[in-house]
Write a protein that binds this DNA or RNA. Structure first.
Lengths: 208, 208
DNA sequence: GATACTAATGACACCGAGTGCCGAATGGAA
DNA sequence: TTCCATTCGGCACTCGGTGTCATTAGTATC
């Protein structure tokens, strides 16, 4: 629904009328409006008008207003899935996941401010906070798949699911800190969050 | 909004017109309808009609349709907060949290089927899955408060937040398993989920 | 018992998100 | 030019949620 990395697939030479806009463009326009006037104060009509399309047409590009800030998330997921499976077999499961999750959240310097604004919306606007849960589910699915495979157990059993949930949890905790501090480094925060996971639940470490 | 354990406060003798229903009653009626016809197929009008109140009146008892299955969650949170602070100081932080979370999810035998149906909706109906995130935030807040206190750091700093997120994550993983299996024991599942947390992130344990 | 006050109710109108339907517009292919 | 595929956009509708306000049902006061 949100996937398909752009660029013509070069297969069938394109039939029928051309689309008058794109997911990426709408997402971009909407993000601007959200930042300018707030998420709730921005209506679909506003976005459609700004994009020069009809309201009805908007819903052919995005299934809901809530999906706008996510843009094309599915292709990011594909990248993470690939990355996971390309990791050296020498890594333990937790090492592999840690590496992949950190890699997943690495963005080119110039995209960082953009990414920050998106995440600011996603983690602070209640409607979006709620809706994002559904996207996180796909993310967890990728992690659980890999964990299940590595552990040799069904991906929907307790351990892979718990692991997937936990990595999501830790990532979100790191993101929250990142957003609270203008010049914080996301990667460093993720790293120390994963570190905490080890020390906090290390049975040798018995207090406080 | 959803708090206040029932029973007349016995203070001022009650003034003005009597409420014609209650949160608990509406929640109960709604749950029945949700199970019978599905969440999405049940409209507010259906619920209001069944309860014999006007549509407008419904929204004076619940802020949204999504809040119906939660009933009075805030008073449960109060209980957990109290329970946490009444735990013996000898327990380590992780031990205390583990105990409190498990206690939080212990229900009287006769309420279990009811609780199961509620959780089934909350974890399977997309709208509710999304909305529930907002309730989980309050739950995490309780955990983070306690953790921050125990660790002597601000409750909104990385470690308490990561811990709160993690306990939520593990609990949800256990709940998912519980719902998948008609005769599973929630407490046992929670317990082994927490166990997994220890073993998975135990630095001594280096594979697979 | 009449009156004043308080609080809950419910009707009405309104908004915005999202959907089904269908004819019109726009492109490539034959 | 004709045919066909695909997108567009208008219209009407449903549903969740909110603001407003008169009405109803109680309690307290005189």
């Amino acid at each position: 629904m949100t996937s398909a990395s752009s660029g013509p697939p070069a297969g069938p030479p394109r039939l029928g009328r051309q689309p008058s806009t794109s997911q990426a463009e709408l997402s971009h326009i909407a993000l601007q409006l959200f930042i300018e006037h707030g998420f709730d104060a921005t209506t679909i009509d506003d976005i459609a008008a700004r994009a020069g399309i009809g309201r009805r047409t908007f819903f052919r590009y995005f299934p809901s207003k809530n999906d706008l800030p996510w843009g094309d998330f599915d292709s990011l997921l594909d990248r993470m899935r690939d990355h996971l499976h390309s990791l050296p077999a020498g890594l333990s499961l937790v090492e592999a996941l840690r590496a992949a999750v950190i890699e997943f959240n690495r963005f080119p310097q110039e995209e960082v401010p953009y990414h920050r604004q998106r995440m600011d919306l996603l983690l602070n606007v209640p409607t979006l906070v709620a809706h994002s849960t559904l996207r996180y589910a796909s993310w967890r699915q990728v992690v659980a798949e890999y964990a299940g495979q590595r552990l040799g157990v069904p991906e929907d059993s307790l351990q892979p699911q718990a692991i997937a949930w936990t990595y999501l949890a830790v990532s979100l905790a790191a993101y929250e800190q990142w957003l609270k501090n203008d010049d914080a480094d996301l990667i460093a925060l993720l790293d120390s969050a994963f570190e905490l996971l080890d020390t906090t639940f290390d049975p040798r470490h018995d207090g406080p």
